[in-house]
Amino acid sequence: MRNLWIFLSRYNAFFFFIIFFAAGIILTIRNNVYQRSVTFGSTNEIVGTAYKRLNVIKRYLNLVQVNDSLAAENAALKTQLLGIASIDSTQITKVKDTINHQQYTLIAAKVFKNSVTLTNNILTINKGIKDGIAKDMAVISLGKGVVGFVQNVSENFATIRPLLNQETAISVVLKKDNAFGSLVWGDNNFDYRKAYVKEIPNHYKVKVGDTIITSGSGGFPRGIEVGRVTNTNLSTGDSFMTLEITLFNNFSTLQFVYVVKDKFAEEVKSLQPEVKNEQ
């Protein structure tokens, strides 16, 4: 206390100056309309600017929640477009289906690890067994196009074998005439923007610009646009043609994907051994 008193006594002139200066400013503002309006205007501008910058910081810190919310909303819209009955961004919701037409359910997930430069690329997403993810489920993108298949699943995460992997093949068709083919990647050209459709019979008339869509096989809903034909002159030397397509989906910027739960996947899978035996 003694040291404080000595400090105040030594600098009392400075403190008296501050007190009288502040009092003078307050009296000037209170008793003069112009000074009062200028002061309030400046104060409001300073406070407004401070709140604006604070809100920018808060929005940045909340980007994760905002992105998750947008993914769920976009998933709901995509669900309606595909004619699917239900969607939940965190888990599969059981919906009473009296007409037994609910075939697909979409689960929104975030990609937090990705690659496009390898010959066998792998994605990792933040959803796993507890969210209803299972091996071999189909995966589609937030925009246009297919992504791939679930490869491995843990409790909270899953890896995806994308189209940009030489072990991936997806059943597709020409949109205009339903000619079936197999969508693959690579073929000596490992461009993440390109892919190839093989096994299209030569008698089909394919033109540059034709659209490729999913066939409805392999867990993918039918009609998802995959890409556009850019080259029809790739000869295979047999009765089938190979088409080069430009993918609608940009794998280098994937942030959110939809894992597709097919209600009839197990039933179809159980028939596959019987089909092989019949052949």
Rank of each mutant, 00 (worst) to 15 (best):
D262T: 08
N188F: 06
I133H: 01
I160W: 10
G227W: 04
V153Y: 09
F190R: 01
E278K: 12
R228H: 12
V146S: 01
K276E: 06
L27D: 09
N44D: 08
F20L: 11
I99S: 12
F15H: 13
G24L: 13
G216S: 14
G218C: 00
N114I: 02
A169K: 01
S89Q: 11
V153L: 05
E155W: 01
T98L: 09
R36M: 01
S215T: 07
N165Q: 09
K269W: 12
S89W: 06
Q103W: 00
S215M: 08
I6S: 15
T211K: 13
G227P: 04
D136V: 07
F17T: 13
T214C: 02
V229P: 06
K205G: 02
K207I: 03
A109F: 11
P273S: 06
F20T: 13
V146K: 08
S9I: 06
A108G: 11
N231M: 02
I25R: 02
N188K: 15
N100Q: 08
K175D: 09
K261G: 00
R59V: 03
G148F: 08
Y51M: 08
S69R: 01
T39G: 04
N32T: 15
L142S: 13
T124W: 02
E199H: 14
D136T: 15
G48R: 05
A169Y: 03
T119Q: 09
G223I: 09
T230Y: 03
I213M: 01
N62A: 14
I26N: 10
N152S: 12
G41F: 15
G186A: 12
N31Q: 08
N277T: 12
A71H: 00
I212R: 08
